[in-house]
Protein backbone atom coordinates (compact mmCIF):
# COMPACT_ATOMS: atom_id res chain seq x y z
CA UNK A 1 0.00 0.00 0.00
CA UNK A 2 1.13 3.54 0.69
CA UNK A 3 4.92 3.78 1.03
CA UNK A 4 4.98 0.03 0.71
CA UNK A 5 3.46 -0.30 4.20
CA UNK A 6 0.35 -2.15 5.32
CA UNK A 7 -2.95 -0.41 5.74
CA UNK A 8 -4.60 -1.16 9.10
CA UNK A 9 -7.71 0.97 8.91
CA UNK A 10 -9.21 2.38 5.76
CA UNK A 11 -11.75 5.16 6.20
CA UNK A 12 -13.84 5.93 3.16
CA UNK A 13 -16.37 8.74 2.96
CA UNK A 14 -17.06 8.93 6.71
CA UNK A 15 -19.88 11.22 7.88
CA UNK A 16 -21.03 11.53 11.50
CA UNK A 17 -23.96 13.30 13.13
CA UNK A 18 -25.13 14.30 16.59
CA UNK A 19 -28.86 14.52 16.12
CA UNK A 20 -29.31 16.82 13.14
CA UNK A 21 -25.88 18.42 13.54
CA UNK A 22 -23.26 17.02 11.23
CA UNK A 23 -19.90 16.73 12.96
CA UNK A 24 -17.84 15.15 10.18
CA UNK A 25 -18.13 15.32 6.41
CA UNK A 26 -16.65 12.91 3.94
CA UNK A 27 -13.42 11.94 5.68
CA UNK A 28 -11.30 9.43 3.79
CA UNK A 29 -7.83 8.28 4.82
CA UNK A 30 -5.72 5.18 5.38
CA UNK A 31 -4.17 4.44 8.78
CA UNK A 32 -0.92 2.49 8.56
CA UNK A 33 -0.15 -0.55 10.65
CA UNK A 34 2.20 -0.01 13.61
CA UNK A 35 2.60 3.69 13.03
CA UNK A 36 1.60 6.63 15.15
CA UNK A 37 -0.99 8.79 13.44
CA UNK A 38 -1.74 12.19 14.93
CA UNK A 39 -5.10 13.88 14.41
CA UNK A 40 -4.78 17.64 14.80
CA UNK A 41 -7.08 20.59 14.31
CA UNK A 42 -8.91 23.35 16.17
CA UNK A 43 -11.42 22.68 18.94
CA UNK A 44 -14.77 21.38 17.76
CA UNK A 45 -13.53 20.21 14.36
CA UNK A 46 -14.52 16.61 15.02
CA UNK A 47 -11.18 15.03 15.97
CA UNK A 48 -12.66 13.09 18.87
CA UNK A 49 -15.73 12.20 16.86
CA UNK A 50 -13.45 10.87 14.15
CA UNK A 51 -11.55 8.45 16.36
CA UNK A 52 -14.72 7.46 18.18
CA UNK A 53 -16.05 6.30 14.83
CA UNK A 54 -13.10 3.92 14.52
CA UNK A 55 -14.14 1.70 17.43
CA UNK A 56 -17.86 2.33 17.19
CA UNK A 57 -17.96 4.46 20.33
CA UNK A 58 -19.68 7.32 18.52
CA UNK A 59 -22.95 5.41 18.51
CA UNK A 60 -22.86 5.03 22.32
CA UNK A 61 -24.12 8.60 22.73
CA UNK A 62 -27.86 9.02 22.10
CA UNK A 63 -29.18 10.25 18.75
CA UNK A 64 -25.93 9.76 16.87
CA UNK A 65 -25.47 8.44 13.35
CA UNK A 66 -22.56 7.32 11.21
CA UNK A 67 -22.43 6.96 7.46
CA UNK A 68 -19.60 5.72 5.29
CA UNK A 69 -17.20 2.85 5.36
CA UNK A 70 -14.51 1.97 7.89
CA UNK A 71 -12.56 -1.22 7.40
CA UNK A 72 -10.25 -2.85 9.91
CA UNK A 73 -7.91 -5.32 8.17
CA UNK A 74 -10.37 -5.32 5.31
CA UNK A 75 -13.41 -6.04 7.48
CA UNK A 76 -16.16 -3.44 7.33
CA UNK A 77 -16.80 -2.58 11.00
CA UNK A 78 -20.15 -0.99 10.22
CA UNK A 79 -21.44 -3.94 8.19
CA UNK A 80 -24.76 -5.29 9.46
CA UNK A 81 -24.25 -8.16 11.87
CA UNK A 82 -20.91 -6.90 13.18
CA UNK A 83 -21.01 -6.78 16.98
CA UNK A 84 -19.43 -3.52 18.17
CA UNK A 85 -18.13 -5.41 21.20
CA UNK A 86 -15.78 -7.47 19.02
CA UNK A 87 -14.55 -4.30 17.30
CA UNK A 88 -13.84 -2.60 20.64
CA UNK A 89 -11.82 -5.60 21.80
CA UNK A 90 -9.54 -5.07 18.79
CA UNK A 91 -9.51 -1.26 18.91
CA UNK A 92 -8.78 0.01 22.41
CA UNK A 93 -9.27 3.54 23.66
CA UNK A 94 -7.72 5.93 26.15
CA UNK A 95 -9.80 8.94 27.09
CA UNK A 96 -9.03 12.58 27.65
CA UNK A 97 -9.51 12.45 31.39
CA UNK A 98 -8.21 9.52 33.40
CA UNK A 99 -11.21 7.33 34.22
CA UNK A 100 -10.07 4.42 36.38
CA UNK A 101 -12.81 2.37 38.03
CA UNK A 102 -12.94 3.81 41.56
CA UNK A 103 -14.32 0.68 43.20
CA UNK A 104 -11.53 -1.53 41.90
CA UNK A 105 -7.93 -2.02 43.00
CA UNK A 106 -5.07 -1.11 40.66
CA UNK A 107 -4.74 -4.78 39.77
CA UNK A 108 -8.45 -5.20 39.08
CA UNK A 109 -8.50 -2.03 36.98
CA UNK A 110 -5.88 -3.47 34.65
CA UNK A 111 -7.54 -6.88 34.69
CA UNK A 112 -11.04 -5.47 34.09
CA UNK A 113 -10.97 -6.00 30.34
CA UNK A 114 -9.52 -9.49 30.69
CA UNK A 115 -12.32 -10.57 32.97
CA UNK A 116 -14.99 -9.63 30.46
CA UNK A 117 -16.85 -12.27 28.54
CA UNK A 118 -16.31 -14.74 31.35
CA UNK A 119 -13.01 -15.96 29.97
CA UNK A 120 -10.50 -14.74 32.53
CA UNK A 121 -7.27 -16.71 32.07
CA UNK A 122 -6.77 -16.87 35.84
CA UNK A 123 -3.36 -18.50 35.70
CA UNK A 124 -1.86 -15.81 33.50
CA UNK A 125 -3.83 -12.89 34.89
CA UNK A 126 -1.00 -11.68 37.14
CA UNK A 127 1.50 -11.98 34.30
CA UNK A 128 -0.65 -10.07 31.86
CA UNK A 129 -1.34 -7.33 34.40
CA UNK A 130 2.36 -6.98 35.13
CA UNK A 131 3.20 -6.85 31.43
CA UNK A 132 0.58 -4.19 30.75
CA UNK A 133 1.74 -2.08 33.70
CA UNK A 134 5.35 -2.38 32.49
CA UNK A 135 4.31 -1.36 28.99
CA UNK A 136 2.56 1.67 30.45
CA UNK A 137 5.71 2.53 32.44
CA UNK A 138 3.79 2.31 35.70
CA UNK A 139 4.94 -1.02 37.12
CA UNK A 140 7.81 0.27 39.25
CA UNK A 141 5.59 2.86 40.87
CA UNK A 142 2.73 0.55 41.78
CA UNK A 143 4.18 -2.94 42.14
CA UNK A 144 3.94 -2.88 45.94
CA UNK A 145 0.47 -1.39 46.03
CA UNK A 146 -1.48 -3.39 43.47
CA UNK A 147 -4.31 -3.93 45.94
CA UNK A 148 -4.73 -0.25 46.61
CA UNK A 149 -7.46 1.69 44.97
CA UNK A 150 -6.82 3.14 41.52
CA UNK A 151 -8.02 6.57 42.57
CA UNK A 152 -5.21 6.76 45.14
CA UNK A 153 -2.80 7.49 42.27
CA UNK A 154 -1.86 10.89 40.88
CA UNK A 155 -3.48 12.14 37.67
CA UNK A 156 -0.57 11.11 35.48
CA UNK A 157 -0.37 7.72 37.12
CA UNK A 158 -4.12 7.28 36.66
CA UNK A 159 -3.78 8.02 32.96
CA UNK A 160 -0.99 5.47 32.63
CA UNK A 161 -3.20 3.04 34.57
CA UNK A 162 -5.89 3.62 31.94
CA UNK A 163 -3.32 2.99 29.21
CA UNK A 164 -2.29 -0.25 30.95
CA UNK A 165 -5.96 -1.22 31.20
CA UNK A 166 -6.39 -0.69 27.47
CA UNK A 167 -3.16 -2.57 26.65
CA UNK A 168 -3.98 -5.56 28.86
CA UNK A 169 -6.59 -6.83 26.42
CA UNK A 170 -3.93 -6.65 23.67
CA UNK A 171 -5.82 -4.62 21.11
CA UNK A 172 -4.45 -4.18 17.61
CA UNK A 173 -5.17 -0.47 17.49
CA UNK A 174 -4.99 2.06 20.34
CA UNK A 175 -7.04 5.24 20.06
CA UNK A 176 -5.96 8.09 22.33
CA UNK A 177 -8.20 11.11 22.76
CA UNK A 178 -5.93 13.92 23.98
CA UNK A 179 -4.39 11.62 26.59
CA UNK A 180 -2.05 14.31 27.92
CA UNK A 181 -4.34 17.31 28.07
CA UNK A 182 -4.89 16.96 31.82
CA UNK A 183 -1.26 16.14 32.62
CA UNK A 184 1.87 18.10 33.53
CA UNK A 185 4.82 18.37 31.09
CA UNK A 186 6.93 15.70 32.78
CA UNK A 187 4.18 13.11 32.73
CA UNK A 188 3.36 14.14 29.18
CA UNK A 189 6.94 13.41 28.21
CA UNK A 190 6.75 10.01 29.88
CA UNK A 191 3.63 9.17 27.91
CA UNK A 192 5.16 10.39 24.66
CA UNK A 193 8.16 8.10 25.20
CA UNK A 194 5.68 5.37 25.90
CA UNK A 195 4.02 5.95 22.52
CA UNK A 196 7.30 5.40 20.72
CA UNK A 197 7.71 2.09 22.52
CA UNK A 198 4.16 1.01 21.88
CA UNK A 199 4.20 1.82 18.18
CA UNK A 200 6.40 -1.23 17.64
CA UNK A 201 3.48 -3.44 18.54
CA UNK A 202 0.39 -1.31 18.15
CA UNK A 203 -1.19 0.95 15.62
CA UNK A 204 -1.75 4.22 17.48
CA UNK A 205 -4.03 7.09 16.62
CA UNK A 206 -3.67 10.10 18.89
CA UNK A 207 -5.79 13.21 18.99
CA UNK A 208 -3.83 16.19 20.24
CA UNK A 209 -4.08 19.94 20.57
CA UNK A 210 -0.37 20.18 21.04
CA UNK A 211 1.48 20.80 17.76
CA UNK A 212 4.91 19.98 19.19
CA UNK A 213 3.56 16.78 20.56
CA UNK A 214 2.12 15.78 17.19
CA UNK A 215 5.45 16.62 15.52
CA UNK A 216 7.43 14.68 18.11
CA UNK A 217 5.46 11.47 18.36
CA UNK A 218 3.72 10.82 15.06
CA UNK A 219 4.68 9.30 11.74
CA UNK A 220 1.58 10.49 9.93
CA UNK A 221 -0.64 13.46 10.64
CA UNK A 222 -4.19 14.31 9.66
CA UNK A 223 -5.35 17.91 9.83
CA UNK A 224 -9.07 18.37 10.36
CA UNK A 225 -10.73 21.73 10.03
CA UNK A 226 -14.27 23.05 10.09
CA UNK A 227 -16.21 25.41 7.93
CA UNK A 228 -18.81 28.03 8.81
CA UNK A 229 -21.37 25.27 9.39
CA UNK A 230 -19.10 23.78 12.12
CA UNK A 231 -18.90 20.50 10.28
CA UNK A 232 -15.41 19.02 10.37
CA UNK A 233 -13.61 17.79 7.28
CA UNK A 234 -10.16 16.50 6.39
CA UNK A 235 -7.89 19.16 4.93
CA UNK A 236 -4.63 17.35 4.63
CA UNK A 237 -3.17 13.96 5.48
CA UNK A 238 0.41 12.84 5.01
CA UNK A 239 3.78 12.23 6.60
CA UNK A 240 4.15 14.32 9.73
CA UNK A 241 7.41 15.77 8.43
CA UNK A 242 5.69 16.94 5.26
CA UNK A 243 2.71 18.39 7.09
CA UNK A 244 4.89 20.40 9.45
CA UNK A 245 7.65 21.51 7.09
CA UNK A 246 5.90 21.75 3.77
CA UNK A 247 2.11 21.83 4.13
CA UNK A 248 0.23 21.84 0.86
CA UNK A 249 -2.84 23.65 2.11
CA UNK A 250 -2.65 27.26 3.36
CA UNK A 251 -5.11 26.40 6.17
CA UNK A 252 -2.76 23.73 7.48
CA UNK A 253 0.12 26.16 7.39
CA UNK A 254 -1.93 28.80 9.15
CA UNK A 255 -2.93 26.39 11.91
CA UNK A 256 0.46 24.86 12.63
CA UNK A 257 2.18 28.23 12.66
CA UNK A 258 -0.40 29.42 15.15
CA UNK A 259 -2.19 31.98 13.06
CA UNK A 260 -5.57 30.62 14.06
CA UNK A 261 -7.27 27.77 15.88
Amino acid sequence: MEDGQDAKIVVDGLNAWYGSVQALRDVSLTILDRKVTAVIGPSGCGKSTFIRCLNRMHEVAPHTRVQGKVTLDGQDIYAPGVDPVTIRRRVGMVFQRPNPFPTMSIFDNVAAGLKLGGLAPKAYLADIVEKALRQAALWDEVKYMLKRNGTALSGGQQQRLCIARALAVEPEVLLMDEPCSALDPITTLAIEELLQELSREYTIIIVTHNMQQAARVSDKAAFLFMGEDRTGFLVEYGDTKEIFTNPKDPRTEGYITGRFG
Partner: peptide, 18 residues
Protein backbone atom coordinates in the same frame (compact mmCIF):
# COMPACT_ATOMS: atom_id res chain seq x y z
CA UNK B 1 -22.66 7.70 37.49
CA UNK B 2 -20.44 9.68 35.09
CA UNK B 3 -20.59 8.63 31.46
CA UNK B 4 -16.81 8.28 31.40
CA UNK B 5 -17.20 5.19 33.58
CA UNK B 6 -19.59 3.57 31.11
CA UNK B 7 -17.40 4.49 28.16
CA UNK B 8 -14.30 3.13 29.89
CA UNK B 9 -15.95 -0.25 30.29
CA UNK B 10 -17.52 -0.25 26.82
CA UNK B 11 -14.19 0.64 25.20
CA UNK B 12 -12.64 -2.46 26.77
CA UNK B 13 -15.10 -4.55 24.80
CA UNK B 14 -17.78 -4.96 27.46
CA UNK B 15 -21.36 -5.79 26.58
CA UNK B 16 -24.16 -3.56 27.82
CA UNK B 17 -24.84 -5.87 30.74
CA UNK B 18 -21.15 -6.10 31.68
Amino acid sequence: VPNSQREAMLALGATHWE
